[in-house]
Design a protein around this nucleic acid. Structure first.
Lengths: 330, 330
DNA sequence: CCAGAAAATGATATCGATACCTTGACATCG
DNA sequence: CGATGTCAAGGTATCGATATCATTTTCTGG
């Protein structure tokens, strides 16, 4: 209101004049360089503050040939039928923001479509979801920027991958189900997704070790409806012999539970169902869903740290995060 | 692999040399200016492409004194107890991205904390959630940038607000509940949130018009547990006389339903419950939740369009989006 | 008290696109 | 046929921070 809109902002040169030093000293002082004596530094910082100096990121970017920005690319184009919210939760983004922010980096959010149509100037890329067949990854790798992917490590890929121990998740589910005495099990999820493939692999391997049997599986999308329909098919196919289910995520699991109930079976009396993710709604679904929890925020942090390291030219290794079995009543 | 990493990229000057024109002509040609003859323009574009020229956004930003970037600030700091995912869904972000991308703008995502600690250079701000007491808004307004807020319009605020017709939502719920014969109603939600306050206002006003009565209300957070506990209190307080509930969002509504069931009452026989948002889990909750749907993606689009307009110096008006009653079984 | 090392500061050029102001070429008109 | 107008294109300066190398000041020990 009363404050006049500044036509042109102060530059470091202006601050330098005010402080009686050279512009470069201002630059060093404001970036906290130890090459400037502490008292000079403090004086400059104070003067800059008082004068209302505002750092010009664009000029810095140009000179340093860096944008201090990381693109976070979400694999899917958001549409009404497949909102951007699935399957990666905002918590992952939250973790990334935390870490980038403390490194003074900025997060530029885009979808695969918007990013490849006009790749913004960024120093590195974090891809959430490697997609089917790794095609998204291939497109991004071509850009020659540091690339960190949330997903499942695949032999022969050059980029860094961070993800949950999906095999462990599958194995935990297998252990739980077999401990409950379940022996005729099925899996719901689309193994074109590398993460899902790993979950299945861990699941079926451990089942065999435990003397149980994977009756079958059915590919399906990450949704309640898809889970419901897939389960229905499997129930018919196997004449309701199924006594345990692992789903690739919680929505699928809930859909499956619905289908099982509709078939006249009781959960958990007749069939046990385990989901994946521990999403918000898992705990208050009826029945409360037993599921494999992923540590999203921590995963986001890790993604960001790896990306930053790669940008600094440091070597970054792929890494897998532990998962946890959350036992509820399904 | 076989492609050598370019040490320095080509500049417009390089392209100009190749094309036998001046740098400024290249600039104009590549930005599609009509001041360049079509054949020259095409030739330049082709040469640039062939030579592998890459536009330098930082230089452009510096010269034009604009970043072509909009900050999307989410109100709350993500923590483990309050993940960033609530209450604003990714669909809102998806809509924003779509619109920004087609205007060649970039989306810089941050939380209130990270943004105010190091405000990136942006041309405008979209704030998701005006927070309690509008304090977040006040902080951002101080920056003097175009500001568009998702929330509820408040008299006397200078910035543009886009949001759902929350009063209509409340009224729709009131109509539905009274049509069902409900007369003793309560509201669950924290009216410190302007949007929630509007929902309550629309609700109670319409109730009176319909000859029903707002028995009471209880402030609570946007979570299942909070909704459960709040409902429990209200049930005790009103000696289970309540026959209808409007909740400020779906999670609260589900918590309330749980509490009602625990009190030995049947839904929808004894009590009707309506949620808000039509979140993913609303449709497959048991019972499937009747709720007020918000059009998130469209809202995101609108937010972005308003912000872009404001940046162009055009006048932008606040606007409210229609909501819809989704009738299910609660 | 001074040589020499170390620390602090400065002058200058530069990153690459583009705004501003011209200039040149050609057409149109009285 | 000269004058005026229109369109296409170019020269130059500039946005503001900072790398590089040079220089001055401060400190240390003998």
């Amino acid at each position: 209101m009363s404050k006049p809109k500044q036509t042109g902002n102060l530059t470091m040169a202006d601050v330098a004049r005010l402080a009686g030093v050279s512009p470069i000293t201002v630059s060093r002082a404001l970036s906290g360089s130890s090459a400037v004596r502490k008292d000079t530094r403090d004086k400059i910082v104070e003067i800059a503050e008082k004068a209302g100096y505002r750092f010009n990121q664009a000029a810095s970017n140009l000179r340093r040939q860096r944008s201090s920005t990381i693109a976070v690319v979400v694999e899917m184009t958001p549409t009404s039928v497949r909102p951007m919210s699935e399957p990666y939760p905002l918590a992952l983004l939250g973790g990334i923001i935390q870490e980038l922010s403390s490194a003074n980096f900025t997060l530029s959010l885009s979808t695969m479509a918007t990013f490849t149509s006009g790749p913004a100037a960024v120093d590195g890329i974090i891809l959430l979801g490697q997609g089917m067949h790794n095609d998204a990854v291939a497109d991004l790798e071509r850009l020659g920027l540091p690339l960190v992917v949330w997903g499942a490590p695949r032999p022969g890929s050059k980029h860094v991958v961070v993800g949950s121990r999906n095999r462990d998740g599958g194995a935990l589910a297998a252990d739980r189900l077999t401990q409950l005495g379940r022996r005729r099990l099925v899996f719901l999820g689309d193994t074109e997704h590398a993460e899902v493939a790993d979950r299945l692999e861990g699941f079926s391997t451990r089942l065999q070790e435990n003397g149980a049997h994977l009756l079958g599986m059915k590919a399906c999308e990450f949704s309640f409806v898809a889970g419901h329909d897939a389960m229905q098919e499997l129930l018919e196919l196997h004449d309701s012999q199924i006594d345990g289910v692992l789903a690739a995520n919680d929505a699928i699991a809930m859909g499956a539970i619905r289908a099982i109930a509709e078939a006249g079976l009781k959960i958990p009396r007749d069939v046990s169902v385990i989901g994946f993710d521990d999403s918000q709604s898992a705990s208050f679904f009826v029945p409360p869903l037993t599921t494999i929890r992923q540590h999203w925020t921590e995963g986001g942090r890790l993604l960001a740290r790896k990306a930053l390291a790669a940008i600094q030219g440091e070597h970054a290794e792929s890494e897998e995060m532990p998962v946890e079995l959350v036992i509820r009543e399904s």
